[in-house]
């Protein structure tokens, strides 16, 4: 290290400070230009509720020693299959969401176990294997969506009657049904109570899980595999448990995401979904080897706030949509930073 930064700064991490400063600057511009704070805040909260569980899904993988789960799309695919099946049966409302989650979770358990088994055999390359397994699965599923035997006319292409559409609108089925549950307004800010509760409730459950025997064992095996061996713990097993958990949460996460977004996105949509989620948890303060619920919540809040405010704020200053570019830089810069610090 060439420049000695104050200890507090180093502990928190320079990138995190830059990101927080960027967010503050965005809000400053928003105030200066008299933008509606209520609308900004409503958007922020909605996006936190929408994306939170996908971020939370990464936590068991990190705590279980699998690193950043770039294979999140594997769980997402399970959830999407659940959505499509529930839509195909035409189940509306909360029941539809529940059915989608149920099917998604039922799929995610064996799939997650298989994923964990593979990661055990490819130790040291989990992140790379996860990335490309996710990519391969998403592109393989694209073929499946095209050939799948779904006949419900609201799902398949109007012409030819074969192959699922790329986006399935949920309007009138279970569009925002969780968000709207007990939804209320405070000072013009809309609170999507149901979705927010789902996120925070799952956060609590995961926190609780890591204080049970199984959760403690998973974290201990990650923290020191040789210690675990001496304590009679097989870290191959705990890693599979972590993998199942991350995949299951990924499946649940995409169902909540889809109902909040109002569309189920198929084909290549899940391809890059792991990356922003990973950026969230890292921005929150997690490392490749350690993460907490606080990291999940803070990170999601910070990163999603930037994404929401960047577009309306910067469009007042700069011609064109810079938010996507900013997202690329922040998201991947954060991941790069974490990768170069891991193991130090």
């Amino acid at each position: 290290m060439t420049i000695r930064l104050p200890a507090a700064v180093r502990e928190f991490g320079l990138p995190r400070i830059l990101i927080a400063a960027f967010l503050v600057a965005l809000f400053a511009v928003a105030i200066a230009t008299h933008m509606s704070f209520a609308i900004l805040l409503t958007d922020c909260i909605a996006r936190v509720a929408r994306n939170g569980i996908l971020v939370l899904a990464l936590l068991p993988a990190i705590q279980g020693g699998l690193g950043l789960n770039f294979g999140l799309p594997i769980g997402i695919i399970c959830g999407l299959i659940g959505c499509v099946i529930s839509l195909n049966f035409g189940v509306h409302g909360v029941a539809g969401v529940a059915l989608a989650m149920g099917v998604g979770v039922a799929l995610a358990v064996p799939v997650g176990a298989a994923y964990g088994w593979l990661l055990n055999r490819t130790r040291g390359q989990e992140m790379m294997v996860g990335t490309y397994l996710g990519f391969a699965l998403v592109s393989g599923m694209s073929i499946f969506w095209l050939l799948a035997p779904f006949r419900n006319p609201t799902l398949v292409w109007a012409i030819g009657g074969k192959g699922l559409r790329t986006t399935l609108a949920l309007t009138g089925i279970y569009d925002r049904v969780l968000d709207r549950w007990l939804q209320f307004d405070v000072a013009g800010v809309t609170i999507p109570t149901g979705a927010l509760l789902a996120f925070l409730g799952l956060c609590f459950l995961v926190w609780l899980f890591f204080r049970t025997r199984m959760g403690i064992t998973i974290a201990a095996a990650r923290s020191n595999p040789r210690f675990a061996l001496a304590a009679g713990i097989s870290d191959e097993r705990t890693r599979i448990q972590a993998s199942v958990l991350t995949t299951v949460l990924g499946a649940v996460g995409i169902v909540v995401y889809s109902q909040s977004f109002g569309f189920v996105q198929l084909y290549t949509a899940p391809l890059l979904m792991a990356f922003p989620a990973i950026a969230c948890i890292l921005i929150g303060g997690a490392t490749v080897t350690r993460a907490t619920i606080a990291h999940v919540i803070i990170g999601t809040l910070l990163f999603q706030s930037i994404l929401t405010t960047a577009l309306p704020v910067t469009s007042q200053v700069i011609e064109g949509d810079i938010s996507e570019t900013a997202r690329l830089i922040i998201q991947n810069g954060m991941i790069l930073y974490a990768l170069t610090r891991f193991g130090k």
Partner: peptide, 27 residues
């Protein structure tokens, strides 16, 4: 700085560079 993780680092570095590339040529 990311010894042993060159591949995933290279992949992400590519995405990151893509962001910078957009910043330069698009804005």
């Amino acid at each position: 700085r990311a010894k042993g993780r060159e591949m995933v680092t290279g992949l992400i570095a590519g995405f990151f560079a893509n962001g910078l590339y957009q910043l330069v040529f698009l804005f």
